[in-house]
Each structure stands twice: as structure tokens, then as C-alpha cells.
């Protein structure tokens, strides 16, 4: 398992928008149980896709700006960025296999 980077309102642009690879951002909060439940799968994917996709977590309690900017009104929400733009939005506790498919689609240019 690999810990996703801590992303916040300040470093979001540098870490996510300007990333050279696709970047998955996990919007979460400490009081959200499904967010905690999805975390291990995201950490596993961070390990499996190391070097191909960047992974980060945004605590929406502490970073309302970026959550509002991307219209996040439900957590967990995973936003997958490519070339600085969100290309996939995955809402709720979803199976790891489904997350993997979204990553593969973006990596192979299908999504």
C-alpha cells in the first residue's frame, strides 16, 4: 500500500493541475465512514499504478475551496485529472475493480 499525497487548497494547482501524469484526487472527511472504507483500495491502487498515475487526498473540512471549485457535494468523490482537467468523477463507495477500469480507460486514452 502507498499513502496518497496530502493535497490542500494551497498546493492543489502545483500537485494536481500541473502533474505530468493523470492524477486521482480522493475527496474525503474524517467523519465519513465510506471515505474510510474506500481508503485501503485507493492506497492499493496508488501502489499498483505508481509512476503511471499520481494519487492524492483532499480533506474537504480543511480545504473547502478546492471542493467547492470542483462542485464536490458528496463524499467520497474521486476526481481523475488528466492534463489539468477533471475527466472522471466517481461518487460513493465503489468497488476497486471499477476504479481500476476508470484508471485504465484514461491511461489507454479511451476515457
Amino acid at each position: 500500500m502507498t499513502q496518497p499525497l496530502k493535497v490542500d487548497d494551497q498546493n492543489f494547482k502545483g500537485v494536481v493541475i500541473e502533474a505530468k501524469t493523470p492524477f486521482l484526487v480522493d475527496f474525503w472527511a474524517p467523519w465519513c465512514a465510506p471515505c474510510r472504507a474506500i481508503a485501503p483500495a485507493v492506497e492499493e491502487l496508488a501502489g499498483e499504478y505508481a509512476g503511471q498515475v499520481g494519487f492524492g487526498k483532499v480533506n474537504v473540512d480543511e480545504n473547502p475551496k478546492v471542493a467547492t471549485e470542483y462542485g464536490v457535494r458528496s463524499i467520497p468523490t474521486l476526481l481523475l485529472f488528466k492534463d489539468g482537467k477533471p475527466v472522471k468523477q466517481i461518487v460513493g463507495l465503489r468497488p476497486k475493480a471499477e476504479l481500476k477500469k476508470h484508471l485504465d480507460d484514461v491511461l489507454t486514452g479511451k476515457g
Binding site: 465519513c32 462542485g71 457535494r73 458528496s74 463524499i75 467520497p76 461518487v91
Partner: peptide, 17 residues
Amino acid sequence: FLGRGVSYCAMCDGAFF
């Protein structure tokens, strides 16, 4: 509107409203 107002988890998303 899933994730943009439609929710199945009040505990998770209540605070956005």
C-alpha cells in the same frame, strides 16, 4: 445529479447542505 445534490448517504453529505 449524483454527487451534485443527489445522495444515498446523509451522514456523508449532510454537511454540504
